[in-house]
Structure formats: C-alpha cells, structure tokens
Amino acid sequence: MSKSTAVSPQAVHVAARNLFASQGYRGTSMKDIAQVLAVSAPSLYNHVPSKQDLLHSIMNVAMDRALGALSAALEGVTDVADQLRRATEVTVLDFLENPAEVTVCNTEIRSLEDPFRQAIIDKRDAYGRRILDIVERGCAAGTFDVAEPRVASFAILEMGNNAKAWFDPRGQYTAGEVAALYGSFALRIVGHREGVSP
C-alpha cells in the first residue's frame, strides 16, 4: 500500500508529542513518527528540519500556552490571594488538559540542545518567578504567613504534577473541580490569613 504524503504540520506535532511522551525522545525515531502518520520518513522533513527542532517546537508551544494562560488568569486581579488561587488553578488545569505535552516538558529538557534548551529554561523560570512574586508580595503585605516563600512557590508549582499523577478524566472530579481544590490548597500552603488585604 502506498503511503500518503498529505500530512499537516499540526499532525506531525501531535504524533511526535504523543510518542515522545510514551516512549521518550531518544526512544523515538523520525521513522516511528512517520509510521504513525502513514507517510514516508523523508516526507517529514517537509514540515520540520529535524527531530531536535520538533522537540523544541513541542516544548515551546507548551510553554507559550502556559505563560499566556497565566497572564490571562491574572489580568485585572488585584487581590493577592485571588492571584495565587487563580495562578494555581490555571497551572493545575494546564497539566490535566495537556498531559502529553507536560510529560515531554518535564522529562525531555535534558534532550534539548542549546540554544533551544536555554530558551525553554528561561520560559520555565519566568513562569516560576511569577508564582514566587505573588507569594512574596502576599507575605510582605501580611496576607500570607510562610517562613520560606521560595520553597512554598516550588510546592505550588509541583501541584500540577501531583494532580496529573492521579487524575482520571472518567473519575469523580472534573479537571476544573480538581484545579479549584488545588487553588484552595495553595492558600493553605502560604498560610493565607482570611480578611487581610494587601
């Protein structure tokens, strides 16, 4: 049977993302991706220069989406407790709604070469700094009471991984309900004081 060459860049992205998540970047060849798409391996190079570029594209899309969602969630929100709740909710929701991309981002950063690797690390760090900034401002205002704001922000950032480890979309809770629960948990982590405003 002849293989079709009609494949979109998005289809290549999705196939690679799923394979990298399930069997790892190093365990996936361009031939594997081509087989999923029922095309010849050489035809993939019409859409992407290399497997390394493909890995970077997957991570870049994921990070840009996460940063954009975080900015949208915080836009116009002035109360620091609401900021932390919303930031946590959007973080957890991203993990639950995009598990394959998150898996690739979490496990394959070591497989990226510079300058790709540093670019993704910079975006990841920018995301983390936004969470830390909220926690530090809350502590400075007396709204939060936590001895180690940096460690608290790390714990909050890990909530997405925690939820992703057990969440089942067919289970008792929806992704939105889980995200809302984790948003309230984050306020407990930072020792939120009810009724105290910045």
Rank of each mutant, 00 (worst) to 15 (best):
M1T: 10
M1C: 10
S2I: 06
S2A: 14
S2R: 15
K3Y: 15
S4R: 12
S4H: 14
S4L: 10
T5P: 14
A6F: 08
V7H: 07
P9C: 13
A15L: 08
R17I: 00
N18C: 11
F20A: 00
A21M: 06
A21K: 00
S22L: 01
G24D: 05
G24M: 04
G24H: 00
Y25C: 02
Y25R: 09
T28W: 04
T28P: 02
S29A: 11
S29T: 11
M30R: 02
K31H: 15
A34Q: 07
Q35G: 08
Q35H: 09
V36L: 07
V39I: 12
A41K: 15
P42R: 13
P49T: 11
K51R: 10
Q52A: 11
D53V: 12
D53Q: 15
D53R: 10
L54N: 13
L55N: 00
N60C: 11
V61C: 08
M63R: 10
R65D: 08
A66I: 03
G68V: 06
A69N: 02
A69P: 04
L70I: 00
A73H: 03
A73F: 05
E75S: 09
D79Q: 08
Q83F: 03
L84W: 07
T88E: 10
E89L: 03
V92L: 04
L93I: 10
L96M: 03
L96P: 05
N98R: 13
N98H: 08
P99I: 11
E101M: 06
V104R: 00
C105A: 06
T107M: 09
E108A: 07
I109R: 00
S111E: 03
P115H: 01
R117H: 02
R117I: 01
Q118S: 10
Q118G: 07
I120E: 03
R124E: 05
A126G: 01
Y127F: 13
R130W: 13
R130F: 12
R130V: 13
I131Y: 05
I131N: 01
L132P: 12
D133Q: 14
V135F: 02
V135N: 01
R137C: 05
R137V: 01
C139A: 14
G142V: 07
G142M: 07
A147I: 15
R150W: 11
R150Y: 15
F154L: 12
A155L: 14
A155E: 06
L157H: 14
L157D: 08
L157N: 08
M159H: 08
M159E: 01
G160D: 10
D168P: 12
P169D: 04
P169H: 06
G171C: 06
Q172A: 14
Y173E: 10
T174S: 03
E177T: 09
E177R: 11
A179N: 11
A179S: 07
A180Q: 09
Y182R: 04
G183M: 01
G183E: 02
S184P: 03
F185Q: 07
A186N: 01
R188H: 15
V190P: 04
H192R: 11
H192P: 05
R193L: 04
G195N: 00
V196T: 13
S197F: 13
P198I: 13
